[in-house]
Design a binder for these strands. Structure first.
Length: 443
RNA sequence: GGUCCGGUGGCAGAGUGGUGAUGCAGCGGACUGCAAAUCCGCGUAUGUGGGUUCGAUUCCCGCCCGGACCUCCA
């Protein structure tokens, strides 16, 4: 498996630190609102990556965190007049349901920030003891100048950062670039006792603590969106490497590209915010999943209705091939598919191979059909029964109408047969006459 | 303003220093009562100007255009 490593800017072969055991950490959701379709992209990408890795290595530990302590959550709870626990529990349940609906398998570990407070405090204590952090007015801040390599990861110098900064610098910061590790909580907000008083963790320290707790000081892959490169990942690296001298933290950094809607960034002000639920209400989940995989993971992806419709048509083609030629049995993943996936997770290329297999299956090759299903399993698609894909649950009334139409056709009453077909078409039922009889599907 | 990424046919989207995948759409044909589906065939692309090279879409430089980040963000 070769992956583009943002740390080195090169495509590198994945060689697990612990032979045979790949350890991967991905930044997960902050649970304050329904997940949008942009949140779905990394979930799907890292799900596919974990599936491929599980096929190649004896053991894979995939950790995806949940940020359940955050100002956004607190604000949302206050606005809605409900407790913070209500918000996080409900949102997390919704997130899991939506992500599962998109065909993602659960990660091996899904740690929550609120369950990782002790490790967070331990790391902060280590940072203070080694002079990389300091307490001030109930806050604990990371001292950016204490880490010579700060900025190296994201490719920017601390001076540049200040030049472009548009925020006021809090008076208790020694350096404008210093960021919060711990901050005080008021009595009405969630808080934990700490050597610096009752408070809560900053956002960046959570990921350092959760990856440490579940994967150790060194692990193989760290994933997340490109928007997290700075400051989030830069800060994670600074915290972890300073807290654990000699460690290298994550060896490979994988970043997924952003997703836009009709060419525009999703934002509340533009009113183009699309949740996973919005999408699932319109099209089968698999169509959304295929669309997310049709573009290479590092590229910008335009998510729109036309693209969604096209993805659905492609799936129709795969399922049509399966309906025509049922798989001969359990298939094998073709070499071309593994090669494409191992080459920096080239899912668009895999999909083109899938189309080739569909052609063969369409022509009657049951082995190709089986292999197509096996390859589709790696992407998390083409696992449904074709009959279910096209028609959902059976419908006796539709079958009766089709029988009536067949009778009309037999007596060459084409006016009536066309009328029946038209009626069904208006209800979204499309008929297909073939040598083996008439089949139907929902539009 | 700074840093970085990208510009491939009508659209989406891979790959590659030596005749440019795949899908959608379009066109022609076969099949069909007519369709649909399927099959066969066709057309159209590497932003721009230089450089390196026997040869560049691919490597290097300038320009133009688009995007991301610099602030919470997948």
């Amino acid at each position: 498996m070769r992956l583009h490593n943002f740390l080195t800017k090169r495509r590198e072969v994945l060689a697990p630190i612990e032979p045979g055991h790949v350890r991967m950490y991905c930044c997960g959701p902050t649970v304050y609102d329904l997940a949008h379709i942009g949140n779905a992209r990394p979930a799907v990408i890292y799900d596919v990556l974990s599936r491929v890795l599980r096929l190649m290595f004896p053991r894979v530990t995939y950790v995806r965190n949940v940020t359940d302590i955050d100002d956004k959550i607190n604000n949302r709870a206050r606005e809605a007049g409900v407790s913070i626990g209500d918000i996080t529990e409900r949102t997390l349940a919704d997130y899991r349901a939506d992500i599962a609906a998109l065909g993602n398998l659960p990660p091996d570990v899904e740690p929550r920030a609120t369950e990782t407070i002790q490790p967070i405090i331990q790391i902060i204590e280590r940072l203070i003891a080694s002079g990389h952090a300091y307490a001030a007015e109930g806050h604990v801040l990371f001292a950016v100048p204490s880490f010579a390599d700060y900025g190296k990861f994201s490719g920017r110098s601390p001076d540049e950062l200040l030049a472009g900064a548009r925020v006021d610098v809090a008076p208790y910061k020694r350096d404008a670039g210093d960021f919060v590790l711990w901050k005080p909580s008021t009595p009405d907000l969630p808080g934990w006792d700490s050597p610096w008083g009752r408070g809560r963790p900053g956002w960046h320290i959570e990921c350092s603590a959760m990856s440490w707790r579940h994967l150790g000081e060194n692990f193989d892959i760290h994933g997340g969106g490109t928007d997290l490169i700075f400051p989030h990942h830069e800060n994670e690296i600074a915290q972890s490497m300073c807290a654990f001298p000699g460690s290298r933290f994550a060896r490979m950094w994988v970043h997924n590209g952003m997703l836009v809607i009709n060419g525009e960034k999703m934002s509340k002000s533009l009113g183009n915010f699309v949740t996973i639920r919005d999408v699932l209400a319109k099209v089968p989940a698999e169509a959304a999943r295929l669309l997310l995989l049709k573009t290479h993971y590092r590229g910008l992806l335009d998510f729109n209705d036309a693209a969604l419709a096209e993805a659905r048509k492609e799936l129709d083609r795969f399922y049509r091939a399966l309906e025509r030629t049922p798989p001969s049995g359990p298939g094998v993943v073709p070499d071309a598919v593994m090669e494409a996936l191992c080459d920096d997770l080239n899912t668009p290329l895999v999909i083109s191979v899938l189309h080739g297999l569909a052609d063969a299956a369409m022509a009657g090759d049951a082995t190709a059909a089986a292999n197509m299903v096996a390859a589709g399993d790696l992407l998390g698609i083409i696992q449904a029964d074709p009959a279910t894909w096209f028609r959902g649950e059976g419908d006796a009334e539709i079958e009766a109408a089709i029988a009536a139409r067949l009778a009309a056709r037999k007596s060459r009453d084409f006016a009536r047969s066309d009328a029946i077909r038209k009626e069904l078409a208006e209800r979204g039922i499309l008929l297909e006459d073939g040598p083996g009889g008439t089949t139907w599907r929902r539009a």
